[in-house]
Design a protein around this nucleic acid. Structure first.
Ligand SMILES: Nc1ncnc2c1ncn2[C@H]1C[C@H](O)[C@@H](COP(=O)(O)OP(=O)(O)OP(=O)(O)O)O1
Ligand SMILES: [Mn+2]
Ligand SMILES: [Mn+2]
Length: 705
DNA sequence: CATTGAAGTGGC
DNA sequence: GCCACTTCA
């Protein structure tokens, strides 16, 4: 029995846009002498010419690849130009590429809703625009001249086009073949009169992406490739089929032909251990081979979710939604210290934590101004030079201020627990081979500027739209004045997009208070997907199980040894910072608020901050971080506004819904589970220290004593 | 001796 | 919710 196109997701149109040799293009734009040359970008020129992380297509022709050392590349390609990643704070600094990425995403989001998938690629939701354009076209179909940079995978069907013409230029032959494929495919598409023709939808999506890519190049100077298909997995795959500077349509009907010879590992999420285990357990090489196995058979080897996903994917089906999100969800930095560089003293660890924290602070401050949000959680990670053992661990604490000294001090306090030498010792063991600092759990802050606040409110107050609003008029023809908003005041389209995204999440949430009552968790990307990477468990079990599944082999918690007894002191609300006894760090699922005072007596820079904090009662908050709550008029640190607003939200909730409520599901789309909202409600807003996830040690002590 | 990010899940 | 671990760029 046939399932409908909708059930198979063939009504959707999505694209994946990926920049060509991105870091190289960034360097070439900066330095014209590099353009059109064999060229690569390296990190840390010192060791054997540095490590290559991006390669121009001219250099790829010589066999130069990522992961090569600069010296190797020169052997293969003596004329290669090597550009170096900038360095700051003693480490590689990727700011230049992040900023270029923002430029690209900004242009893209003028055309449609996008999901930033990495520094150089984004998914594009085209379904609504395609439908709008179809209405406008009144039965017409795209013509080949609208698809000048487009390939159709699988077309022409027999690859012997133009064989009678002896074309001596290979590029000319390829172009002729491309055009032939596009033309014949469009003809067949037009002759299929069915409304809701899936291929027609793809062809129209492709015309939009042609325009979008032209705009990207015009406004940023960067070239890219794209894939257009009915789901993210196929779009990603298609994008890589005709790089560089080309886009590829992958019609559903071409999937079997392509998949029959496509190695499993080429599919997103099958490139690692899971893919290997699928290959081994099923005895297959190509993704197309998987169609021969029933779902039941697959479930004999893999979990239910993985099996269902595999069963669909090998047929070209996938249902991952595009999650509207233009910004990263975390901001972090890390540095490796290999071999002899490993940090074996407390001073070295302290020094590098400070360097990392300084970069982090700079990026966070810029992020706050640009994106009106603040991170609420700090995570510190470390790898240690333990052989055999797994010497990696991470710990988190509340982020309360963007201050490098405090960040570094807190991080060191969290890490003290894993120095076997003990807190007072000068040595650090096992030696640290990698340090990471990362900030996440962002909350929106209403920023002071009158212009910005007005724009923000009007965007949020827009009338509710249907789940899939007609966005043709908003997105389809971006204003030619796009240029002047290259850098970072929020544009009309983006505001509209944010409102739209929110409306899609809370379908008819008409009962929300005007300002949405105080979930300040950033609206970027807070919609949860049904099932993304459940891949970890399967990959893991693939290793531990030899033949049969679910041997829950117990992994020894190796770092626990280091963690047992070192002192991390709590910050207490009443500021009576007593020295506390040593304690086990991990025994509740609460991240720790550390008092780093005890750890940094020798560091003058940090001492300065510390003494300042002491003077301010240990709770210093700079005036520019203060906000007025527009509910009660109280002055609150912007860091606490989310919780403060939650308080008001809960109050209004109680009034509005005291008798009869909507379904709890209504609240999805705000970032917090309903259960948590309820819990938070009682907390006094202004004076409360940190009632939210990043907990102080108070509650820890309450529980454990 | 690649390095430096970033996103996501499931166990607990 | 924290953390370990996988996958990807
Ligand atoms: N393993 C890595 N380590 C560090 N940086 C990386 C790594 N892989 C990729 N990058 C950076 C450099 C790339 O220019 C950028 C985008 O990656 P990616 O899209 O995979 O390749 P690319 O853009 O260089 O070439 P392509 O034209 O094949 O897309 O991310
Ligand atoms: Mn790329
Ligand atoms: Mn990429």
């Amino acid at each position: 029995m046939m399932v409908s196109p909708m059930e198979r997701g063939l009504d959707r149109v999505v694209a994946l846009v990926d920049m060509d040799c991105f870091y190289v293009q960034v360097e070439q734009r900066l330095n014209p002498a590099l353009r059109g040359q064999p060229c690569a970008v390296v990190q840390y020129k010192g060791y054997q010419g540095g490590g290559i992380i991006a390669v121009s297509y001219e250099a790829r022709a010589c066999g130069v690849t990522r992961n090569m050392r600069g010296d190797e590349a020169r052997k293969l390609c003596p004329t290669i130009k090597l550009a170096r990643v900038p360095e700051a704070h003693g480490k590689a600094d990727l700011t230049r590429y992040r900023e270029a990425s923002v430029q690209v995403i900004d242009v893209m989001s003028q055309y449609a809703i996008v999901e930033r998938a990495s520094i150089d690629e984004a998914y594009v939701e085209l379904t609504a625009q395609v439908q709008e354009k179809i209405r406008q076209m009144e039965g017409h179909v795209p013509i080949p001249s609208q698809l000048l940079r487009t390939f159709v995978e699988g077309w022409p069907r027999d690859d012997e086009c133009e064989k009678e013409k002896p074309l001596n230029d290979c590029e000319d032959a390829k172009e002729a073949c491309r055009l032939h494929g596009v033309t014949t495919w469009l003809q067949l598409t037009a002759s299929d009169g069915a409304v809701g023709n899936a291929d027609l939808n793809l062809s129209i999506g492709a015309t939009i992406i042609e325009e979008m890519r032209a705009a990207i190049e015009a406004e940023t100077g960067f070239r890219c490739s794209a894939g257009i298909a009915h789901n993210k997995m196929l779009a990603k795959l298609a994008c890589g089929l005709n790089k560089p500077n080309r886009q590829t349509i992958l019609p559903h009907s071409s999937v079997p032909g392509l998949f029959s010879g496509l190695p499993l590992g080429k599919i997103r999420n099958l490139g690692g251990k899971l893919g290997t285990s699928v290959s081994e357990k099923l005895g297959v090489e190509f993704i197309g081979d998987v169609v021969h196995y029933s779902k039941q058979h697959l479930e004999g080897h893999f979990g239910e979710k993985i099996s269902g996903w595999l069963y669909d994917v090998c047929r070209g089906l996938e249902f991952e939604p595009i999650r509207p999100r233009n910004l990263p969800k975390s901001i972090g930095c890390s540095k490796n210290f290999n071999g002899p560089e490993a940090l074996d003293t407390r001073e070295k660890v302290r020094y590098w934590l400070k360097e990392l924290a300084t970069e982090l602070e700079e990026r966070l401050v810029k992020d706050k101004e640009t994106n009106q949000r603040v991170a609420k959680q700090l995570t510190v990670g470390v790898h240690m030079d333990t052989k055999g053992q797994n010497g990696t661990l991470s710990r988190c604490s509340a982020m309360t201020r963007y201050d490098a000294n405090k960040i570094a001090a807190d991080a060191l306090a969290l890490l003290n627990a894993c120095n076997t030498a003990g807190r007072g010792q000068a040595t650090w063991s096992p030696a640290v081979t990698c340090l990471q600092l990362s900030a996440c759990k962002f909350s929106e802050v209403a920023v002071g500027g009158t212009n910005d606040i007005a724009g923000y409110l009007s965007a949020n107050a827009k009338p509710l739209l249907p789940a899939l609003p007609k966005m043709g008029s908003s997105f389809g023809t971006p204003p030619k004045s796009v240029k002047d908003r290259g850098s970072r005041t929020i544009g009309i389209a983006e505001l509209f997009q944010r409102a739209t995204a929110k409306n899609q999440q809370c379908s008819q949430a008409t009962n929300m208070s005007f300002d949405e009552g105080g979930d300040n968790s950033t609206k970027e990307g807070n919609c949860k997907g049904e099932h993304t990477s459940f891949f970890r468990k399967e990959a893991l079990s693939a290793i531990h199980d030899d033949d049969d599944d679910d041997s829950n082999s117990q992994r020894p918690d190796t770092m626990e040894d280091f963690v047992i007894s070192t002192s991390i002191s709590p910050t207490v609300d009443d500021d009576s910072a007593e020295t506390t006894p040593d304690l086990a760090v991990r025994s509740s699922n609460r991240c720790l608020e550390v008092d780093s005072n005890l750890d940094l007596q020798q560091d003058s820079g940090i001492i300065d901050t510390l003494s300042k904090m002491k003077k301010e009662g240990g709770n210093f908050i700079s005036p520019e971080d203060m906000e007025n709550c527009n509910e009660c008029g109280k002055t609150v640190s912007m860091w606490e506004l989310p919780e403060h607003s939650d308080f008001h939200f809960a109050q209004s909730l109680q009034k509005t819904f005291s008798a009869s409520c909507e379904k709890p599901g209504l609240m999805r789309g705000t970032s917090m589970p309903a259960s948590q909202r309820a819990k938070r409600r009682a907390a006094p807003p202004a004076k409360r220290k940190k009632a939210s996830a990043n907990h102080t040690l108070d509650s820890f002590f309450k529980k454990s004593s």
